[in-house]
Design a protein around this nucleic acid. Sequence first.
RNA 1: GUCUCCGUAGUUCAAUGGAUAGAACGGCGCCCUUCUAAGGCGAAGAUCUAGGUUCAAUUCCUAGCGGGGAUACCA
Length: 566
Amino acid sequence: MEPQLIKYLEEHWNKDLASKLQFSIVPKDKGGDLAVNFFALTKALGKNPLEIGSEVQKALEVCPLVEKSQMVGPYLNLYLVADQFFQDVLETPIEGKILKGKTIMVEYSGPNTNKPLHLGHMRNHALGISLCALFEAAGAKVHRVNILNDKGLALAKSMLAYDHFGEGKTPESEGIKPDLFAGNWYVRYDLESKKNPELEKELPEIMRKWEAGDPYWQGLWKKMTDWVLAGVRQTYQRQGVWFDKEYRESAHYERGREFAYEGLKKGVFQQKEDGSIYIDLKDLDMGEKTVLRSDGTAIYLTQDLSLWPIRKKDFGHIDEMIHVVGDEQDYYFKTVFESLRKLDLAGDTKFTFYGYGLVNLPTGRMKSREGTVVDADNLMDELAAAAAEKLAEQGKFNAEETHATSEQVMNAAWKFFLLKTSPTKSITFDAQKSVDFQGDSGPYLQYAGVRIKSIFEKAGFDLKTGLESRPVLADLEFTEAEKPLGVKILQWPHVLERAAENENPTFIVTYLLELAQAWSSFYGQSSILNAENEALKKARLALAAKTYHVLEKGLAILGIEIPEKM
RNA sequence: GUCUCCGUAGUUCAAUGGAUAGAACGGCGCCCUUCUAAGGCGAAGAUCUAGGUUCAAUUCCUAGCGGGGAUACCA
């Protein structure tokens, strides 16, 4: 609607300045459907908002789009001609194009292969899933990548414990999820090393043998990482996490060493007397960062640096590389990015550290040592059980439906909870509250969608075909009752654009809540199937279908599905 | 010390420099012989402090106060 208004005003008011007008939402109960403000033009015209407003108001007097207009304070509130308004509503695009032509790589999850996923990963996943879907909805090409941290001291500890006490047990023989099984040996190491501090001394030897390719330790390593990965992948699938490509640290860390020597030869890295190699970032106030230890082994930074060229080779040009990681790694990633720049590897790629705040518990910070880490699978089970209980009360589901739906509701619950707060803020995850589906919640949004679906089922045709056979506006008759919901729908493209530009799914969450509220309020006040006349009924069905499609898209961006029933 | 993120109703969160700061939970009052009450309607309730920039500041700047986090040959 704005483009048509601007076009009209360019012709009938001011050719150069009309496009600078700012449109905004009319606050509740202010009257009007769309507001125009003139703050940006006060200097250019040397007039105050009221003067400009009345000029514009005059120009719009005979505009076919505007029923009437009214100055309220510095704003000109427009009452739009219903036909035009609702045509715009029904034609609101679901997809955006602001990122069209852009290629974005998103790295997320980054599990350690020594234990199961926990609550912290869930925030990472909620953000990773939604960022990727958001960019795609805004027109970008997205590559989802993962880095599996499958080597290191932690894994050596697990191997040691299994080697000493494993007795050949397997996840199958014990009947537990393989990542949990493997993770238990990591816990076991902690326990045993407290009893017997001597154990710790065996670790360097294990690491050395593993790196040297010793068949026994390589075999055990493969067995244990495979267990963890098998379990982690089960969890990924349950959560809707997937990747175009997974990179294993173990597969390319060797390359890091060559990489360090190459850099030294080129003169971008320096060497110390003890043989260690470092990159000088003092000019950027970041000190010196070691890239190769004095004993010649690579560190994680080196692995990260050497991974980038591999990724570029795999995927070609990338406009933006986003790392979704906890914000405590801020400094670390700054050094990675600066190093890539110094190495002249960054090209024109924009590197983004997407840091998110910690997920705390009401009792404080999660600490693996204190056993306060919330396991992802357990949490999801808990949520799914709560959902299943609620569904059972409805009494219209068989066991299979209950399971499928409770999984959908479970995913909606935690994803919503972890996305409704801005990424930069830390979250206190209250398990009790997340199980409570009252009010602002993922299930609330699903419920709104389910109620729309239900209406269409009752009306005897499904939503998809309802969309394809686009309603003819002439057959429809809208009233003021539909306006607030229409206004909300019109905002969608702007919200999508802003969320994509700011790389912030929280904007989508907030919007969907408002949309669902507008829908529920409309639903509560106006009957659709029993509307006063056929034209109004058709109009309301068309509006309901539109609402559904925006809601469905928005929820899909958050990684949330709308169940058939609930 | 330095860097960084954060500070909004009793609580958990929103708010692209613009209208009366939006929700939800909790507490209060309503609404199920009418499309699913996991819902709707109504009333109460908030910007850490002090300066500054601006016609306009929750938002930007400076200084405090309070809380996370980072400052490794860990990741």
